[in-house]
Design a protein around this nucleic acid. Sequence first.
DNA 1: TTCTAAATAGGTAATATTCTTAACTAGGAA
DNA 2: TTCCTAGTTAAGAATATTACCTATTTAGAA
Lengths: 152, 152
Amino acid sequence: MEPSREEVQERMDRFTQTMRDSGTRLTHQRMEIFCEVARTGGHPDAEMVFRRVRKRMTTVSLDTVYRTLWMLNDMGLVTTLGPQRGRVRFDANASPHHHFVCTKCGMVGDFNSREFDDLEVPEEVSRMGDVATTQVQLRGLCSRCQKKESKE
Amino acid sequence: MEPSREEVQERMDRFTQTMRDSGTRLTHQRMEIFCEVARTGGHPDAEMVFRRVRKRMTTVSLDTVYRTLWMLNDMGLVTTLGPQRGRVRFDANASPHHHFVCTKCGMVGDFNSREFDDLEVPEEVSRMGDVATTQVQLRGLCSRCQKKESKE
DNA sequence: TTCTAAATAGGTAATATTCTTAACTAGGAA
DNA sequence: TTCCTAGTTAAGAATATTACCTATTTAGAA
């Protein structure tokens, strides 16, 4: 599941380009941290990234890893699995439904779609396990955050 | 967005039935906690549930709320938004892809599907905000957890 | 090279979640 | 009903996770 050498290179290029374009400093730490996530096939958490990066940069701090990861997230260079930072949130709606998640404020809206409910699961997935539910997650800026942004 | 009275009643019935079937005790606390989540349109976190339930049961503890919510989750009566308990996880894969999430161990597997990439966003959602990405989340038991279960 | 705003390390603080244990109670048995 | 007890709870302590503070360092501009 590791990305190919070319894939990793491509991600690194996108990273440096995006950083330059937005005028954000390209520090050694940031490069190491992004590189670590980019070349990992899985979905590491901050602690894992920290441990791996520290092997090469013994002084890096966990706080820097967190700060950098969330910054990368804000810039769209990495994504988080599930909603944004914060607490676990629960949902008692047992009937099939789907979510729109605001990538900025974490607001979650429910919606229904017959089409989404009835998606056919790819063969590839059956090797991973038994699928019980299907849920579509749409991510983007909610209208409230849009208004805020346009004011600035 | 609040569920209708009938909808709440239906959820409560399902709750008591499932609890009885599994031989789990129907305590006052559990009923209040489930009821609180069931009648909330949104997606409350444990702290919110705790604050609301405490208004009626002044002695309930936060720990009980957590324990109960995770128990309800295990029984399939509520779901969590995003992956299971634990840390935030990051993903540097910028190209569109989708996830299979194990509801037991939290294992996440990636997969690709042209069909899923090109889903058409329902009109209803455009009122919530601007959709940037579409991601399908399939949930179920991964093969490893299946094997573990069948052993028991 | 020098300068300066931005970023970092390391310690500390704040949150979020879970564990421990003694006391309590729901629900079955008598 | 009353008694019994395994399962459940409250409360506080312990962990885990994430964010803040400040002196120091550094990337990138001039």
